[in-house]
Design a protein around this nucleic acid. Structure first.
Length: 484
DNA sequence: AGTGCCGGGCT
DNA sequence: AGCCCGGCACT
């Protein structure tokens, strides 16, 4: 098949052969701006970035590129059924002998939902959030704005009854995650320049995949750090990092086992690849719930699936059973950790070298006034982007309010107008750093940091409600609740 | 004048 | 470490 760049061919359909099943990836025309985006089939490493949405649709082995069309015009008119049905059917047909086919999740990863998130964008320093789900279309093939799509009741979504539940699904998810990660880290993939289409059946590669998958899977069973725009909560986060290392710290310190998963993943890649590298732009794949009015974003697919399963589908949260239906309700998004970090770094003026993540991420993910640091491509205007919506007036962060009290951490959810603070432990460290830095600043009089514009506790609560002030304000220290 | 918070002292 | 406050910078 043609391995030209998408730019050269508006409707590039890239067939990826995995375990005997073919996947056709369609590159959206609207995003055909980056000639750096090679088709997946191109021999050699996967593209580090696929600029713009890449729509993937699974087709049966031997199926034609037009399969998608016929699928979409499914007489059932279920806008989800085409891709999903085919996908699942394929899963049954082709995944019968999973031990030989390698990571079955790879196949699943190629599901439309996932592929939608493969899109990446290289806009400098900007966070890319592409929550487009190409499969959310009407039976007539018309695109429908996500916001207009009412998630169908689970009972309306045809799901193969004999799907293998729980663990298996998670494996698939993990495999999908790995695939996504690989697509992000080109060098990690096929160091031997094995054609993508063959790597699934290549013995060494297959084994490596299995190992990675098993390890990744075993390390990610629960605890997904997340922030949920819908409930206005944001994970508590450590101080913002300035370096990638700090980014990692950010993740580690703020996301517990989720972090482990992330670390595990990257760790595998690190081991697999002798050449140290960092993800360009420090892009991190997140999973966004597409359920209407739900902006839940999780770091792992299993997490988002669990979220959807328990919150939206009303299934038993205790059960890991998954019929894959959740796949339809979330998509991947790319989060530029660097951007987040940048935004976060400004969170704590006195901690220029502290660590933190996203959100990013995170945690250090967001600082309300600094949301502009994170540009979400694709939804420039509204769209509750991860961070852009964290306006002071609507912000609700989990934070520690008494950093000055050291270990006496007291986490609480703060409402309206309160900014998220870094985790207490980290923050304490920050203060220490600040203490160390202060003397130097002292030597240069006149460098006193400008007063922040944010209202502080005094202004917000007034003297009469001094008991509501943050500890720092009460002690006439730099306000920790309304940071600049 | 009001506010933010550094620096330092006290417990 | 927690707490408090004088005093300065800034608005």
């Amino acid at each position: 098949m043609d391995s030209r760049y998408i730019l050269e061919k508006p409707s590039v359909e890239t067939r990826v052969s995995v375990s005997g099943a073919d996947f056709i990836c369609l590159a959206g025309r609207s995003v055909l701006h980056d000639s750096r985006v090679p088709s997946v089939e191109k021999s050699g490493p996967l593209p580090a970035y696929t600029n713009g949405p890449v729509f993937c649709k699974p087709v049966m082995d031997g199926g034609s590129a037009t399969a998608g069309k016929s699928e979409r015009s499914s007489p059932k008119g279920n806008r989800f059924s085409p891709g999903g049905r085919i996908l699942h059917d394929m899963g049954k047909a082709d995944l019968g002998d999973q031990k030989d086919t390698g990571p079955t999740g790879v196949l699943k990863r190629a599901s439309p939902t996932h592929c939608a998130g493969i899109s990446r964008q290289l806009s400098g320093g900007s966070m890319h959030l592409d929550i487009r789900n190409p499969w959310k279309q009407t039976a007539q093939g018309q695109n429908v704005p996500l916001t207009e799509i009412q998630p169908l009741p689970s009972t309306h979504i045809p799901v193969p009854r004999n799907r293998k539940p729980s663990g298996h699904a998670d494996k698939e998810v993990m495999a999908a995650t790995v695939l996504t990660s690989l697509s992000t880290s080109p060098l990690v993939l096929c160091p031997s320049s094995a054609p993508i289409g063959n790597f699934a059946v290549s013995e060494p590669s297959s084994r490596a995949w299995k190992e990675m998958l098993s390890a990744s899977y075993s390390s990610s069973t629960s605890g997904n750090w997340s922030w949920d725009a819908s409930d206005q909560s944001v994970p508590s986060t450590p101080s913002p990092p300035l370096t990638n290392d700090t980014n990692k710290n950010f993740l580690l310190s703020s996301h517990g086992d989720d972090v482990n998963e992330d670390v595990t993943e990257s760790g595998h890649f690190m081991f697999e690849d002798p050449i140290p590298r960092k993800r360009k732009n420090s892009m991190k794949v997140m999973f966004k719930c597409l359920w209407k009015n739900c902006e839940k974003v999780l770091s792992t697919s299993s997490g988002i699936q669990r979220h959807i399963r328990t919150v939206h589908l009303g299934r038993n949260s205790e059960s890991d059973y998954s019929d894959g239906e959740e796949d339809f309700y979330y998509s991947e998004i790319e989060v530029n950790m660097d951007s987040i970090t940048e935004g976060l770094s400004s969170l704590t003026p006195t901690s220029p070298t502290t660590a933190g993540p996203p959100p990013v991420f995170p945690s250090p993910l967001t600082d309300v006034p600094h949301s502009e640091h994170i540009n979400m491509n694709g939804s420039q205007s509204h769209a509750p982007t991860l961070l852009s919506q964290s306006a002071p007036s609507t912000l609700c962060h989990i934070r520690t309010d008494h950093a000055y009290q050291g270990h006496v951490t007291h986490v609480r959810t703060v409402s309206i107008g309160e900014k998220r603070q870094p985790a207490t432990s980290t923050h304490t460290a920050v203060n220490k750093n600040h203490a160390l830095i202060t003397p130097a600043a002292k030597s240069t009089p006149g460098t006193r940091k400008p007063r922040g514009e944010a209202k502080k506790c005094r202004k917000v609560y007034g003297m009469e409600k001094k008991d509501m002030w943050c500890t720092a304000c009460r002690w006439k220290k730099a306000c920790q609740r309304f940071t600049d």
